[in-house]
């Protein structure tokens, strides 16, 4: 099957500092890829560049999304084409209700998919159903976007949006950070429910914990702006045990004590 996403030799800088130093990745429909790596390795930069944040400078490389040049698309065009980012830090928008926000978004996306816009009644029905999947109270629809939500509610709200907008490719940027185990399970079950042969996931995480519940097909280690190792789901366990330092590109198999051993 044709890949949904092809990243070739992607080099990205912010404020003159190179963060991604030649990333290569292919993601096919139905696959779940986990990207792991220590803090500052460039994981969130990769997510931000794929979603189209403008403050990043692409120095070199190409990104194809379903065969189209992703880097030339506006952020909203990427979203409408089916790329979804679950934000690490979801943004609060005072005065704008969740209902207004999401119906506007959903109908924009439906438009490019050639679907009729949903009327308020049909929208509410669909939204309530999806909210149930991630255990969010329907009253949240009348609250301002993310305003006054707890950390866990914000993360679940991101997954709810994923469920509602039904993207082709979902990127989860540290969705597990700050979640307790129950919330983590809810988030994971929401994601798992969406797994299908047509849809792919890129799960960015620092810890292996989330991957107990969202089982990846591939695990990649991003280190200092490059993917230094790829493997199956067992790689995540190895990382959990050994930390990241043994993967440092310039130190061949130097075993340093991990946090736990110290």
């Amino acid at each position: 099957m044709e890949p949904i996403l092809i990243i070739r030799n992607l080099r990205v800088a912010i404020e003159g500092r190179e963060i991604l130093r030649g990333v290569n990745l292919e993601v096919r429909p139905g696959e779940v890829h986990a990207i792991m790596g220590p803090n500052g390795s460039g994981k969130s930069t990769l997510a931000a560049v794929l979603a189209g944040r403008e403050e990043y400078e692409v120095l070199e490389g190409t990104v194809l999304f379903e065969g189209k040049n992703l880097l030339e698309m506006e952020p909203e065009e990427r979203a409408r084409a089916g790329l979804f980012l679950a934000f690490q830090y979801p943004v609060e928008i005072p005065g704008v209700t969740m209902a207004t926000f999401l119906r506007t978004a959903l109908n924009e996306i439906r438009k490019v998919r050639g679907l009729e816009p949903l009327d308020p009644v049909a929208f509410l029905k669909l939204a309530r159903e999806r909210m149930e999947w991630v255990d969010i109270d329907p009253s949240f629809l009348q609250r301002s976007v993310n305003e006054g939500f707890s950390g866990g509610e914000k993360k679940r709200n991101e997954i709810f949006q994923l469920l509602l907008l039904e993207p082709r490719l979902a990127i989860l940027d540290e969705t597990d950070s700050g979640l307790d185990i129950d919330a983590l399970k809810i988030v994971a079950s929401g994601v798992n429910r969406m797994r299908s042969p047509e849809r792919a996931f890129v799960v960015i995480t620092h810890y292996q914990r989330l991957l107990n519940y969202i089982i990846p097909d591939f695990v990649h280690v991003l280190y200092d702006g490059r993917i230094v190792r790829s493997g199956g789901k067992e790689l995540a366990l190895e990382l959990e045990e050994r930390g990241y330092d043994w993967l440092r590109p310039d130190s061949e198999e130097v075993i340093l004590p991990t946090v736990d051993e110290r």
Binding site: G52, R53, E76, F84, I93, F101, T104
Partner: peptide, 14 residues
């Protein structure tokens, strides 16, 4: 806020 809206498919002007 703008980027968050746009990532959900809403145009900049909207």
């Amino acid at each position: 806020m703008l980027f968050y809206c746009r990532q959900r498919g809403i145009s900049e002007e909207d």
